[in-house]
Write a protein that binds this DNA or RNA. Structure first.
Lengths: 191, 191
DNA sequence: GTAGTGGCTTGAACTAGATTAAGAAATTGA
DNA sequence: TCAATTTCTTAATCTAGTTCAAGCCACTAC
């Protein structure tokens, strides 16, 4: 399956655009291949693209004043990623997005997305549903962060993303879980 | 300002509906007054309404198996609240939403919202923008939960919601911050 | 080969924040 | 008005998770 077929498949699950709309949408996309370790976006730079992952795996992380990385999200095929705040406000991003494995992404430039929504408002619905679902996921993550122990969070992570552990170095999983790699090591030993 | 004027004011900041659309939107809304302590939604019941607060203050919390409450959100005038997951899936809600002070809300029933979006797709844009903004806020909260100390989180909360501390019992603020009331007490003494 | 580098583990000492228990202060209510 | 309930504080003890320091294992590069 080509990467454009893949994203159309994803879209058709939520809305039913006509062929003309689909064609226009696809024409706005910018396919990019990333090798492992390469950056899709860097903290400090303004984000111009909304990113859809079609193959591989990316992660988005925040680097605080002390230089510690906090992983916000992993994104595999079918996910949208990128810094929404920077994309909306056109202020420098606070996030870095980087390939954890050789990956393929589709860039949707902000200005192109605005054109799309202007011309074919049907796509508002698609993005509304995407954001709405994402919001539920984020709410769950906040609850989990506050109410579950590190060990519970790790096991929930394994259940939810069973294949991620092969892809992703443990230190990034630790960061995603909000713990140190040392402590994750201890949790894993127990089992 | 009436509560319907208030919500229209809020909507006009994001989209520009024509009078006919505004009128239809307003006709879908169901104004409700809540006394302090009353419930807008209860955990265990299916959520049928999306809620817009026009006066007062509500809070939404999650109760875990041990019976501990975790406050997810405070909502004052101008905010949307409610359990998106239950609203979308029509499964029983895991959240309770309750008035912290005498309040006024506008209920937008799920089925009515669907009618609205069907008939006037322009409103998709409004909700898309709402969810998009909310997502940014939630992302920030996740970062804060993992990278900031309880003390920093408390001071950030004070900065961000300067009036909330008068409204809201401290134990709920502690819960929102993910700490015990005892520890919040210690933090406050220091200052 | 072996020197380097990054990812993972181990253990000892430490700390942010929880738990428990009690008392003080503020609200409510008949 | 005074008892009852709820909210807030204080202090002692305890624990989940951090920090620091070291060692181990793969993998790469000269």
């Amino acid at each position: 399956m080509t990467s454009t077929n893949q994203i159309l498949f994803h879209i058709r699950k939520n809305i039913t655009p006509d062929p003309k709309e689909e064609q226009f949408f696809v024409s706005l996309l910018n396919p990019v291949k990333l090798k492992q370790g390469e950056f899709a976006e860097k903290a400090g730079e303004v984000t111009y693209n909304f990113i859809h992952v079609t193959a591989g795996c990316l992660m988005t992380y925040y680097t605080d004043k002390q230089g510690n990385d906090q992983v916000i999200q992993f994104a595999t095929a079918g996910w949208w990623t990128g810094d929404l705040h920077s994309l909306t406000s056109q202020q420098p991003s606070i996030y870095t997005t980087r390939a954890l494995a050789d990956s393929e992404i589709l860039q949707l430039p902000k200005v192109r997305m605005e054109e799309l929504l202007e011309r074919y408002p049907r796509f508002e619905r698609y993005f509304r549903i995407m954001f709405q679902n994402s919001l539920v996921t984020h709410q769950n993550r906040i609850i989990e962060a506050f109410t579950a122990t590190a060990e519970e969070r790790y096991h929930n992570f394994q259940k939810k993303y069973p294949h991620m552990e092969q892809y992703v170095p443990l230190k990034y999983i630790a960061s995603y879980l909000g713990i140190t790699p040392e402590f994750l090591s201890k949790i894993r030993r127990k089992k």
